[in-house]
Amino acid sequence: MLSIIQAAGWPIWPLILCSVVGLALVVERLISLRERRIAPPKLLDEVMAVTRQSLPAADVVAKLHDNSVLGQVLAGGLRAVSADPRINEHGLRQAFENAGRVCVHQLERYLNTLGTIAAAAPLLGLFGTVVGMIDIFGSQAPTGGSNPALLAHGISVALYNTAFGLIIAIPSLMFYRYFRGRVDEYALTLELAAERMVPHLLRFALRTAPAPTTPAA
């Protein structure tokens, strides 16, 4: 491998950097997008059971917020009702939506970088191949006395960059699509959980009595 890197020349170093960064991002996303860290299966039912009679205390809501991403969304709704006991359905839905946007943004972290690596790696490989071909043909004697075997070897060395770029791009693109699908799935889970919580929490919202109407004269 070291001999291939040395033979491919300096254009392969950006590809090596992309491979290291891409691998680190894949490992980080695999760890961060686990189900128990995003949306534990029984968390919503547990929250609804705890809040069946009354709203939980602030320290309980804080623990819920730190539990998972779904906990952050649910805690946002609980805090909205606690802060404004007269909140209406629109305001509560807006509170859930704002919390959901923040959480989805967290889930999408580093995905743009991984997608950029998947798109840029083949171009970097092609750039390295072009640079290598320029060096090969530029080193040939102008009288045409070139060695075909040496020329073929030089071309194969130049193509290392393209091959290395594809080796980086294909797994990066596959993991990017996989993580994008996981984020979409989790976003739907958060949305459905918020929909279940809205009517549940509206039971604790105070209703202002309608103003009495004066009979027409």
Rank of each mutant, 00 (worst) to 15 (best):
S3E: 12
S3H: 11
I4Y: 14
A7F: 09
I12E: 09
P14F: 08
L17W: 15
L17E: 04
C18V: 03
V21D: 00
L25K: 13
L25R: 08
E28A: 11
R29N: 02
L30M: 15
I31A: 11
R34A: 08
R34E: 07
E35R: 15
R36H: 09
E46D: 07
V60R: 14
A62L: 10
K63C: 00
N67R: 15
N67V: 01
V73N: 03
R79C: 05
I87Q: 14
E89K: 09
G91F: 00
L92R: 05
R93K: 01
R109K: 15
L111E: 15
L114T: 02
I117E: 12
A118W: 14
A121G: 09
L123A: 08
L126R: 00
L126W: 04
G128Y: 00
T129M: 01
V130Y: 14
I136A: 00
G138A: 08
S139V: 12
S139W: 11
Q140A: 12
P142V: 10
P142W: 13
P142A: 10
G144R: 03
L151C: 03
S156K: 03
S156N: 03
L159M: 02
N161P: 02
F164D: 00
S172R: 05
Y178P: 06
F179C: 05
R182Q: 07
D184C: 04
A187R: 02
T189F: 05
E191P: 09
E191F: 00
E191K: 12
A193H: 05
A194K: 07
A194R: 09
A194S: 07
R196I: 04
R196D: 03
V198S: 14
P199K: 13
L201E: 02
L201C: 06
L202Q: 10
T208N: 15
P210E: 15
P210G: 13
